[in-house]
Design a protein around this nucleic acid. Structure first.
Lengths: 111, 111
DNA sequence: ATAATTTTTTCTATTTTTGACAAAATTGTC
DNA sequence: GACAATTTTGTCAAAAATAGAAAAAATTAT
């Protein structure tokens, strides 16, 4: 059972015995914002990912995977047949990849 | 190979021999907006889905599937290992579903 | 070339999101 | 219970993103 991204951060923070104030300072955001992030009430700015990876010694790619899959989950979780959405999404992604390759305007550096 | 949602609308429109102006009027949006939608340069307002279903006699559920999977595809298509993102997303969606966590209702005490 | 259609540009208005602060609530300790 | 530390919530203005409309530019068809 996968937790949400906010819960993940919460776990990391508490296991490291950090207060919201301290971690927020390290991430350069307000502590109230961090609280809202952990509780899923605020968008997570992508810029904090590398800082999180640095502070907690995490694989940045894994973090990004958690981050984006969270956004997708947010979109599909109210749908009954979500796996159908995902299957179709994968086909469409493949299509976009191919058509954009033809036009030579894609960048896999951050993939 | 699945087309984009914009291309799908374009196909529907041209097969019905409708101009941008006419269809846009029926959808109650500007024709320049419809042009951008067909060309993937503008977000697609969810409100047009029922109108599209009505005009072209389509299954609204299928339309919604196309609509949301398009949004997901937009997010993941630059990622190389997109299927991993989707697998994780499905787990997270399941988690959200089970714990019934709507935005702003996370309670770690009971988590 | 002209006309019709489509695409792009530009501008303004509206909505949404953000960051910061302070107040309220919760938690833990004595 | 009282107290301090931590966390959560609410508010509000500023910033950013998005929408809508009109018109110019480009494309397509006759």
């Amino acid at each position: 059972m996968k937790e949400t991204f906010g819960e993940y951060i919460h776990k990391l923070r508490t296991e490291a015995s950090l207060t919201l104030t301290k971690l927020a300072a390290a991430l350069d955001i307000d502590q109230s914002t961090l609280s809202k992030i952990e509780n899923g009430k605020r968008n997570i700015p992508e810029e904090i990912l590398p800082k999180l990876a640095d502070i907690f010694n995490l694989d940045i790619n894994q973090l990004e995977k958690e981050y984006f899959s969270e956004k997708i989950a947010e979109m599909i979780y109210p749908k009954e047949n979500s796996s159908e959405f995902l299957k179709l999404a994968e086909q469409k992604a493949e299509y976009k990849r191919l058509t954009n390759l033809k036009q030579g305007k894609i960048d896999f550096k951050n993939a």
